[in-house]
């Protein structure tokens, strides 16, 4: 299984996005955008609520407000 050894894709522990390390830049701002994109497309109320909570906690950590994407 040579591909496993070479594969540098890992799930981000904060947002769950599959990130190519180390080429892909991935900061907490990228996590925020990734979760927001999911929130925009989620229609199930309880999942929206959970996503909303994760976005809120990231906003707090980043000193940001609102639910609009940031150009990273």
């Amino acid at each position: 299984m040579a591909t496993l050894g070479r594969s540098n894709i890992r799930a981000c522990p904060v947002c769950g996005k599959m990130v190519h390390c180390p080429e892909e830049r991935h900061t907490l701002l990228h996590c925020r955008n990734f979760l927001l994109k999911q929130l925009y497309q989620e229609s199930v109320p309880f999942r929206r609520k959970m996503l909303q909570e994760r976005v809120n906690s990231l906003n707090e950590r980043l000193s940001l407000t609102g639910q609009n994407l940031l150009d990273t």
Binding site: Y40, Q41, E42, R48, Q67, N68
Partner: peptide
Amino acid sequence: QDIHAPNAYNTLG
């Protein structure tokens, strides 16, 4: 796609 986006123009930008 982004039917719940608060501001579609921002995403467009």
